[in-house]
Design a protein around this nucleic acid. Structure first.
Lengths: 226, 226
DNA sequence: TACGGTCTTATGGTATACCATCATATAGCG
DNA sequence: CGCTATATGATGGTATACCATAAGACCGTA
């Protein structure tokens, strides 16, 4: 969107040189979400140092961050990729249903043409990536879709919380996307939400959102059971 | 409750030697919540090292944690105590209303004698501390009250989120407790919630909870306005 | 006096060093 | 052969060292 705002008098520098820490944090987070590091796996600091090419200071600070984020659990003998108990997952889906549907409804009430266009673009992206079977990309596009909704609806704090929760169930989400069913219904529900927002119909949007999450939860339960 | 579980065959050691980091984290968090460090204030690492008597490694890792927790914001030129915009506070109260009332209702449905006793003890503690005008202690006792509710209701994840949110609005909470009105109505609402749970009446409990938070939100708004 | 340049210092980012602990392997002793 | 004890390595916790940068102080010149 706003790559370089060199036009106009806007010479403002808003991105102080990115730190190694920020890069490492992003990489580690994506690695965990993508399942490169399996739940329960030990995260040996010195090993990560070599893998990322940074010092232990950086790695340790990143691990602290991920720990607070809930993606990593620090046991007595060092950091471990957090594993999700089914009951936790169920609670997370419940909370998501509450926060996301509220945001979706708010968004449907206030959405203007700009927001609608943005959402449509995100949905298109999701469907395109789904067609390519690039599931990580689908996840990221979905994230952008929700981001737009939370921002437009003015629920930025809830958006932050949900982003956190998305990360924690991401392992499952990659699994659920493995379900042939979900590959179809997921994008369909998303499109329903988008269309309800486009029609400025809060009730329909909220309902579609809750249905979407309920379905995801059901699939996750089936997958976690086995 | 369970200080030393030396009786029975339970010789389990569950607290691997506490690290400096854990201690420092707790102290810093409390300091920020108590307002020892004011919102917007720079947190100079080397200064904190002297104040806490630990090395920068520890301080930095703690700051990362608090950053992820939302209590500290890392600007381009270093860490700063997060300051709460009114709109953020409003959103937080809204989210709390949703999550806390849901948990309270769940708790009211399943509460047994043990839970009820625990809640009553917490309420007594709150009222005692309020009488002593020890507002930090009131906050902590309130935290325990909610902890018990979230645990009993099986909403542990939401409890975690709410604990986080409590921290972020704690500055305001200390302020609202400064309001003579709140000193009275706060504990009263808490008692209402407790009694509704004791009566296993989910509707009443949820309603009392929502009222409680709405009042807190209103007072916060008035205080933030000036 | 005003402007510009340089030096100093405060501060965060990054890397490294050192230590305690725990697990494992190996050797010695019965 | 088996058991114990010591050595050794792996790993996290903590402290320190070094560097780059940005902001301020100080000084000299026009």
């Amino acid at each position: 969107m706003n790559e370089n705002a060199c036009e106009m008098g806007n010479l403002r520098i808003d991105s102080p040189p990115t730190t190694l820490r920020a890069i490492a944090l992003e990489r580690m987070r994506r690695a965990i979400i993508a399942g490169v590091f399996k739940p329960g796996q030990r995260l040996v600091e010195r090993t990560l140092c070599e893998q990322l090419g940074v010092s232990r200071s950086v790695i340790r600070e990143v691990i602290r961050h991920l720990d607070a984020e809930g993606l990593v659990m620090t046991t007595g003998q060092g950091p471990v990729v957090a594993k999700l108990a089914w009951d936790d997952a169920r609670q997370i889906y419940e909370i998501r249903a509450a926060l996301e549907s509220a945001a979706v409804e708010a968004c449907a009430r206030v959405a203007d043409a700009g927001v609608k266009a943005e959402l449509r673009a995100a949905v298109d992206e999701i469907e395109r990536r789904a067609a390519e079977r690039d599931w990580m990309a689908v996840l990221e596009a979905t994230e952008r879709f929700y981001d737009a909704i939370f921002t437009a609806g003015g629920h930025t704090v809830a958006g932050e919380i949900v982003r956190r929760l998305h990360g924690r169930v991401a392992q499952l989400r990659v699994l659920t996307l493995g379900s042939e069913n979900r590959r179809v219904t997921g994008p369909r529900r998303i499109r329903e939400i988008c269309e309800a927002i486009t029609a400025n119909d809060p009730e329909a949007a909220g309902a579609a959102c809750r249905t979407h999450i309920r379905e995801a939860c059901a699939i996750a339960e089936r997958l976690l059971a086995k």
